[in-house]
Nucleic acid binder design. Structure first.
Length: 674
RNA sequence: GCCGGCAUAGCUCAAUUGGCAGAGCAUCUGAUUUGUAAUCAGAAGGUUAUCGGUUCAAGUCCGAUUGCCGGCUCCA
């Protein structure tokens, strides 16, 4: 559920947010005009505009937008004043019951969501309305002065959302719109959207042949990297490996799955099981499990009242492997006799000869076992284990999104085991590495989101180690402050094992992406009993830093596609150079092939186009394929020992001696520039 | 997973009230011998996502399934 903003925070709204918030009221008033029985929930400004959640029998569709916009236009033209009215709590409750809130007049049914919201307003906060004409809405403000201040607006889409974001609550229609001071700014916004659409990684990825989703044979969210996409994958790996090698990392390789014991020990199962693929059961003797299920089925049949709960247990036994005795007691206490048999079977199963394997959703436990494989002295630390590890996460079907949200992912992962004394410099070095990468990719805008725990989550969402939480959070905060890195702190979003930093970057067209992560782990190494021998000859548990500066191949490349609009710099370009001949005279073709071979011998990704097509056609196809550098070769070039260089999107830059052109290409690739 | 929308050739899109599935690009064949963003001609390409239903007749109407898209919740 979204945190409720207090009045101080509300006053901090920017002018644009205020305008959009007001536009949301105008939208609600327009909808109330068209459908008087509409029940409104909340209508805040959001990043690109605003929305209002409404409960309405009529399904609003894009076909309704013109009518809604027309109503809004009338209200804006009327230039109604946003009039703030402070009311007593009783008055507000009475009005809500009379259906008067978020409405044009009294109604037969109460304004149910507003009623609920009033009840949630803290006692020390005043209750206020905003009135525009006959439309009265419960609202703390702030607003613009008049509806006429909403200069330009558009209703953009409709989607569904749960009341207060909780799936247990009723489902509402969320009407999205956007608003700006004037039409010029709104046009700029829509131009940006158009640009984003053109740069959509799914579109460009398909056009350039970078990856495909074979949902029929492989599965949704499981991308296949085509040869051209694999080039990018491997160039990024090369960059990461070089950078990590220089920073003192060592590389390891681990399998894609592990026994259940791994994730029971790590503590991931209770926190993370939902996000993992269901386990593979390799038990030699599955009898007990089958028997338990059979028994439970029989019990279920024997008493319909309990069917539902029994099926829930059956599911737990069958899938989750959770056989919590307390939960069983609670559910079955009135069923002692029947249940005792089932319980016994389940216990047998738990202690039985089970072999359950999970596809790994993260690499850390494997790395922990590598740490555990050999004894360590404080002299070995920090130990930095790096791996481009393939993980599998069972993302909900509705979450999958091109390369940005997938079920198989390759993480630029590493785990740094260090002493508390080493922590600050190690953590800082990781942050420095991020900045280094940002420079290479030309990312000017970034922000680190520092996520901390919340006291009420200890023992539930987070491991119950209050002292360690405080200690590590303080350490991280200090590093961030000392290094003057741009960061914001958000409470209650940490990983279960420690505070974390998510790195947000903005692409060339200003869209935000969460790319990388950097997490502190003071809990899991302890659970695996990892230790090193310290100077004082005692065994101590190391701290662990999880870090993934390039996130996953999948998301990072998705981001890069948009960032570069598919026009990759030379070092990343799937096809770096294409040699184009003018005609197919043998001498010209020989010269072209010679250049092609020379480049290929230097590891340059080069293709020769020596066919009989005319040069315009060859250039057209090279440009469409976003080939970075085109070397055009005709009789003139052959005679002079030149090549004519043409750069994608930049046009012809003229003839150059062959050796010079090749040297320039090699230099640009080696320096990862251009 | 939930709500809503969508699904026609490799890609982008056509197909009148239900009445013979079609075009451009890409592909293949041949011709064209060309100086910086598309040379010409021909061929091939389809159980209209899948399964079921209504109908004399279904790409078109109805139902289910799968996938994708926009959101919600979640997240690298």
């Amino acid at each position: 559920m979204e945190e409720r903003k207090n009045l101080d925070e509300r006053q901090k709204m920017t002018d644009l947010e205020r305008l959009r918030h007001s536009a949301a009221h105008v939208l609600a008033a327009a909808i109330a005009q068209l459908w008087p029985d509409a029940q409104f929930a909340a209508g805040p400004p959001v990043e690109d505009g605003f929305y209002y959640d409404v409960d309405l029998k009529h399904r609003i569709s894009p076909e309704d937008f013109p009518a809604i916009e027309a109503e809004m236009k009338k209200l804006i033209k009327a230039n109604q004043v946003f009039e703030k009215v402070i009311v007593t709590r009783d008055q507000a409750l009475a009005d809500a019951k009379a259906g008067r809130l978020a409405a044009l007049g009294n109604r037969e049914v109460p304004s149910k969501f507003k009623l609920d919201i009033i009840e949630g307003i803290p006692a020390d906060e005043p209750v206020s309305y905003f009135k525009t004409g006959e439309f009265i809405d419960l609202c703390a403000g702030p607003h613009v002065m008049r509806t006429g201040n909403v200069g330009a607006f558009k209703v953009t889409s409709v989607a569904s959302a749960y009341y207060k974001g909780d799936e247990k609550n009723s489902q509402l229609q969320r009407i999205y719109g956007t608003a700006f001071k004037n039409k010029t700014q709104m046009d700029e916004y829509f131009t940006m959207l158009e640009e984003a659409k053109k740069r959509d990684h799914r579109k460009i990825g398909a056009e350039m042949g970078l990856y495909v989703m074979d949902t029929e044979y492989v599965g949704p969210g499981l991308p296949l990297w085509l040869p051209k996409g694999t080039v990018i994958v491997e160039e990024l790996e090369k960059l990461a490996k070089e950078t990590e090698f220089a920073a003192g990392y060592v590389r390891v390789k681990t399998p894609h799955l592990a026994k259940e014991k791994m994730y029971k020990t790590s503590g991931h199962l209770p926190y993370y099981a939902e996000s993992m693929f269901p386990p593979m059961d390799l038990s030699e003797d599955r009898g007990s499990s089958q028997e338990a299920i059979q028994h439970i089925d029989d019990v279920a049949k024997s008493d319909l009242d309990f069917t539902k709960r029994l099926l829930a247990i059956r599911k737990i036994v069958e899938i989750e492997g959770k056989t919590d005795a307390t939960a069983l007691k609670e559910l079955f206490h009135s069923f002692d006799e029947k249940v005792s048999v089932g319980k016994k079977l389940i216990e047998d199963e738990r202690h039985g000869n089970t072999e359950r394997y999970y596809l790994k959703a993260m690499n850390c436990p494997h790395h922990h076992r590598i740490f555990a494989a050999e004894p360590h002295s404080y002299r070995d630390l920090p130990l930095r284990l790096a791996e481009y590890g393939t993980c599998y996460r069972y993302e909900q079907s509705g979450e999958l999104f091109g390369l940005m949200r997938v079920r198989s992912l390759n993480m630029n992962d590493a785990h740094i085991y260090c002493t508390p004394e080493q922590f600050a410099s190690e953590f800082n070095a990781v942050n420095e590495m991020y900045l280094k990468y940002f420079k290479i990719f030309g990312l000017e805008k970034y922000q680190m989101r520092f996520s901390t725990s919340a006291p009420e989550g200890l023992g539930k969402k987070y491991v119950d180690e209050p002292a360690l939480w405080k200690q590590t959070e303080d350490m991280v905060r200090q590093v961030l402050i000392d290094s003057k890195i741009n960061f914001v702190e958000v409470a209650n979003e940490a990983a279960f094992y420690g505070p974390k930093i998510d790195v947000q970057v903005w692409s060339a067209i200003g869209r935000e992406f969460t790319i990388a992560t950097n997490q502190v782990d003071f809990a899991v190494p302890k659970r695996f009993g990892l230790t090193y021998r310290d100077k004082d000859n005692t065994e101590k548990t190391p701290l662990c830093i999880h870090r993934a500066p390039l996130g996953t191949h999948e998301r990072f490349i998705g981001f890069l596609i948009e960032h570069y609009a598919g026009n990759f710099p030379l070092w990343l370009a799937p096809e770096q150079v294409r040699v184009l001949t003018i005609g197919d005279e043998a001498a010209v073709v020989d010269y072209a092939n010679g250049i092609t071979n020379e480049l290929r011998a230097q590891q340059v990704r080069v293709v020769a186009d020596c066919g009989t097509n005319n040069i315009k056609g060859k250039i057209q196809s090279a440009e469409v394929a976003k080939v970075h550098t085109m070397l055009v070769i005709g009789g003139r070039d052959l005679e002079a020992g030149n090549v004519s260089v043409r750069l994608h999107g930049k046009g012809n830059i003229g003839a150059k001696p062959k050796a010079e052109a090749i040297a320039n290409i090699l230099q640009a690739i080696a320096s990862r520039q251009g």
